[in-house]
Design a binder for these strands. Sequence first.
DNA 1: TTTTTACCTTGACAAGTGTCAAGTTCCGGG
DNA 2: CCCGGAACTTGACACTTGTCAAGGTAAAAA
Lengths: 211, 211
Amino acid sequence: MARQATGAAKREAVAEVVRDDKFNARRIELAEAALETLGELGFARTSLREIAQNSAFTHGVFHYYFSDKLDLICCCVRHYKAKCVTRYDEVVATATSRDELTEGFLAKLAATLQNEARMHRLWYDLRSQAMFEAAFRKDVLEIDKSLEAMIWRIASRYAELGNKRPASSPAALYALFDGLFQGALLKHLAGDKAAIAELLDEVRRLLPTVC
Amino acid sequence: MARQATGAAKREAVAEVVRDDKFNARRIELAEAALETLGELGFARTSLREIAQNSAFTHGVFHYYFSDKLDLICCCVRHYKAKCVTRYDEVVATATSRDELTEGFLAKLAATLQNEARMHRLWYDLRSQAMFEAAFRKDVLEIDKSLEAMIWRIASRYAELGNKRPASSPAALYALFDGLFQGALLKHLAGDKAAIAELLDEVRRLLPTVC
DNA sequence: TTTTTACCTTGACAAGTGTCAAGTTCCGGG
DNA sequence: CCCGGAACTTGACACTTGTCAAGGTAAAAA
């Protein structure tokens, strides 16, 4: 009888975990769909209904899976992060010379600026929103840290390949690259065809001087 | 008769100029009032009615002086710019040594971060909005250029006072300082008491290495 | 004084918003 | 097979939004 009870309890617990996994998987599905519209319209102009219309879901589902709009957006941001911070890891891991690392880094940089401009502008939008909306701050600060670490990994490896050490702090390096990227993104979105090339030139020139 | 006609025409022209001046003065008054609310709530959550309620005006006046919401916001941004880009001019003009320039610059930096945080976050908000809303781009890009020039004036003078030349491009320098400022602003708004001090330290350390 | 004009107020409208409760469908366990 | 609950849809709610037209007021022009 005790065994039966434990068995039943265990089965119930397992079932709950499975349900939770399904629940979370669905949340991510919905977040991914929401990211499409958010990237298109930005935080200010995106409504739950618009998100739903641009997806295979009805607007009610979003309320079923998220307690409110902020909850949804936060989930989107967190999901976005996971994809983002590993972008250059492979390049860092496989490059065997400074040139190789430089070219690999620049290639990825140009590609993501070209192909994922909408996701990047959404990130800058949300980071700005975090200055107004306290609910965003924790997630945004965490992502910012991860991005800083990502840049630091690249710079460290680059320095290492030249038997040097990075010349600035992680914060300054991140500020520099993030600032350049943000500027290039805005110019690129404004139709400036040379924006990406200029960013690459600038970074190529800068790398040897900061590491 | 001809004289009379010219006289009348002249008077009319003068009257029109006066009217235009009054009109523009009123627009700026309204824009200034709007900036209060925009700085408080951000672009996304600010409505014309809310702007009106937090001011001495009724919501109809805004529609009388601005063709639509974007027109109002653009006017706000342009007005904001004029105030912003001259912040460090006096320090640059009067400093007679590197130390003097550094301390003057850092003092202004700390003060504006402390006292005008709401205006600064609004700027970052609007710059992000420009990535979505084409109507903002022209003004935003222009302000960005002015800010870059502002930083460049500081760096040039700093280098000059040490008989050196700036070690990076205007774009890279602006990206660096803007990135650091943005990060410090976010941390400051998130309640990080050390954010401002850390920014000052970082800039103090950085200045001699980039100029 | 009368009339016109600029300036501003008020109230209304339609469209859109987040939220949620009431239903419907569907599937797994009994 | 059936039934209970999870998953989802639908429609409605209270509210806010940008926009604008109709009206009023006071100062300037005639």
